[in-house]
């Protein structure tokens, strides 16, 4: 891990998010010059509203990445959640949450109990849960409970309710990660699970909580998405895995664990969204946008050099 540039721990964590703040500032200036509409309040609110789901998923992903893990299954959990929420059964929402927690439990169980590599473990749940989502809802459709539609359409003081909810959740998550004992133990576990264990951290519980939270946040993202779409879609979550990892890496949270925070990755989501929006305004084809997204992901991860090559 590179420690250059900061001598105190708190400053180092804050510094890690600095590049993405700089990037988004530059992007905002460029967009503001290129297209006056880009930075209008309405456009920004729309972007925020569109990104609520990814922001929620990314918060969960960040928590897992801090422990030096990776959760590839979040996209499938998003899909499964929209499938269950749109199924029309009573208690659809609690069921969706339970299903997501079960996925988190299976992930953590495989990693802790059987020692399976996090990438293989979440790869396997990603595949299996995708199958479950297709089982519950083979084709897009269905409808969500009325209150969810109300939630998606509600505004308070001109701000969409989902945006306000997301802001509250992000704030709480940021405080927990940066100021609480749990947050500190996440970083301790990510730096070296063995040392942390000897040093007095219950690393097993931390890793379990991390994967449960990741699935829970993915579920919240899925519920928000289902509310927006007012229906379910078994494949809608597919991009969320890559996108949440891209935002996390872009936001300065080290993929090798132990360093980072919530604010950076959330700004990473907004950066990617603003970029996509700007490219749309400039009439650049979505194909090029995919390529740009890939390039950005590679650039972001290239900033996270490891001590030796690895997964």
């Amino acid at each position: 891990m590179k420690l250059a540039g900061a001598t105190t721990a708190v400053r180092l964590r804050r510094l890690s998010a600095l590049p993405v703040f700089a990037l988004i500032a530059v992007l905002a200036i460029v967009l503001g010059v290129a297209s006056p509409h880009a930075l209008s309040a309405q456009n920004l609110i729309n972007i925020l509203n569109q990104q609520v789901s990814l922001i929620l998923v990314t918060v969960g992903q960040t928590i897992v990445v801090l422990t030096a893990g990776l959760d590839l299954s979040v996209g499938s959990v998003v899909s499964l959640t929209t499938a269950i929420a749109s199924h029309g059964t009573p208690f659809a929402v609690p069921l969706a949450i339970l299903a997501a927690l079960a996925v988190g439990l299976v992930n953590a169980g495989g990693i802790l109990r059987f020692g399976i590599h996090p990438i293989l473990m979440t790869l396997s749940t990603m595949t299996a849960v995708q199958g479950l989502a297709l089982l519950v809802r083979p084709i897009p459709g269905g409808t969500v409970p009325g209150w969810m539609k109300t939630y998606a359409g509600a505004e308070i003081l001109g701000l969409p309710l989902p945006v306000i909810c997301a802001a509250v959740v992000v704030f709480l998550a940021a405080v927990v990660v940066s100021r609480s004992r749990f947050g500190l133990h996440l970083m301790a576990t990510g730096a070296s699970a063995q040392s942390a264990l000897l040093g007095g951290v219950n690393t097993g519980r931390i890793i379990l909580l991390a994967y449960l939270l990741s699935s829970l946040f993915a579920c919240l993202g899925g519920l928000n998405l289902a509310a927006r779409l007012a229906s379910g879609d078994p494949l809608v979550g597919q991009p969320f895995g890559i996108d949440s990892i891209a935002a996390t890496a872009l936001g300065g949270t080290q993929l090798s664990g132990g360093l980072g925070g919530v604010a950076g990755p959330v700004v990473g989501v907004l950066f990617l969204a603003l970029l996509g929006n700007g490219l749309n305004l400039l009439n650049i084809s979505t194909y090029y946008q995919m390529i740009i997204k890939g390039v950005l992901l590679i650039l972001a991860v290239s900033a996270h050099r490891r001590n030796q090559p690895g997964l």
Binding site: L3, A188, Q194, S195, V201
Partner: peptide, 15 residues
């Protein structure tokens, strides 16, 4: 067994 990414105080009070 000190964690390099934590502060001295955080290490002392870990757990």
């Amino acid at each position: 067994i000190l964690l390099p990414n934590l502060s001295v105080a955080e290490n002392l009070f870990l757990g």
